[in-house]
Design a protein around this nucleic acid. Structure first.
Lengths: 204, 204
DNA sequence: CAGGAACTGTACCGAGGAGTACAAACGCTG
DNA sequence: CAGCGTTTGTACTCCTCGGTACAGTTCCTG
């Protein structure tokens, strides 16, 4: 629990979190032992328990790390234009199929594994999703101000639904090792958003 | 691996699978030990290893059991009418919030936990989803024949997308312990389906 | 160049869980 | 009722993994 003060300490701790995130993303949270992480990061147990009181605490930090990753990737796209959103969707499809090899959403896959891990972790996962959504919600709000989105659209609800649909696509695509469910899910999400564009005014 | 021949044997095996399914659904696959299952079902280890060669084989059977449950629930609704689909969606929302206490989709939650459990289980989960989808796909095809769905709609793709959106709703709602994401996701799924109804003919 | 705090190495402990051994009991068939 | 395959009870082994103990090293500060 003591935060590292020296450069060396900070480096060690962040190396542990980074490697833990990568391994847990690949193999799953439960299938990743502390010792795996320490071996991969070239550190010893005493370092680990110097910075983390338990595995649970590590998982909490990994969750935050994954959220940061997701937000960082997302910040490459201007989520306050239709083109930006389309590009973001397309990029997620490309990554899932190429770099990621159908391993799912970096945030979603870990979150789903925390549902049965007791209360503190579950609510942290919920917070992570909410923060992700508010990023997208902010973009949608900006579009609303500029008249790209109807005034009666609720940006936060739209954002939440979009992330939900996205997660469903990730799950099916990971399970089937087939990019199509994700592509179709994102197409649905986009058409849902677009149905709130003032031009294509359909009654819902 | 020997299938039980006597009534007593069949009963024991199915009791094990049923209890295992319930416990794994509640606590997660990894958090459910063989001994937990045996204690709950009042059986001993020798029975277990008489009927299953490993925990992995048990999990495979549990997956099939959950698929059966889902298909059985679903068969209560006529999935070849708009009313039937609406009622089915509504029932899932109600169950998730009441009986199930936000524990997710009986099939989806276990499937997501099998992604990192190696190849045989992952592909079995994929098959389970596919079989679920074809159930819905059959209903949509029937609607198509009766003119309730456009001819240019692809029932199987629509079914897959619907299940994907549904899973995303389940995940967000379980994580947040809030029924709204699931309700909104299902609303999106329904409006997506309805957009293929001949009456409300919008270009996509 | 002390001296102490931050950091690191290594050996160990205890719990739990998957899987095995082996013997006993059941129940159908002849 | 004798015999044999099916089913069941119990005790045990082996191993992994989270967590602890304790000693050693680094490195900044005065």
């Amino acid at each position: 629990m003591p935060e590292p003060t020296t450069r060396r300490g900070k480096d060690t701790k962040s190396r542990i979190v980074g490697l833990a995130a990568a391994l847990m993303y690949e193999r799953g949270v439960n299938a990743t032992s502390i010792e795996d992480i320490l071996a991969a990061s070239g550190t010893g147990k005493s370092q680990f328990y110097h910075y983390f009181s338990s595995k649970e605490e590590l998982v909490a930090e990994v969750l935050g790390h994954q959220l940061d990753q997701v937000l960082q990737e997302q910040s490459l796209f201007p989520l306050d234009t239709w083109e930006g959103i389309s590009a973001w969707f397309q990029a997620m499809v490309d990554m899932q199929q190429n770099q990621r090899g159908y391993r799912g959403c970096p945030l979603g896959s870990i979150s789903s594994q925390l549902l049965d891990q007791g209360e503190p972790l579950r609510s942290r996962a919920a917070d992570a999703f909410t923060r992700w959504e508010s990023f997208l919600g902010d973009g949608l709000r900006a579009m609303q101000v500029r008249g790209l989105l109807c005034d009666d659209a609720d940006p936060d609800t739209l954002a939440e639904s979009t992330i939900a649909v996205l997660q469903g696509g990730y799950l099916l695509s990971s399970t089937k090792r087939d990019i199509r469910p994700m592509r179709h899910a994102l197409a649905i999400a986009l058409s849902q958003l677009r149905s709130y564009a003032p031009s294509s005014r359909q009654p819902r």
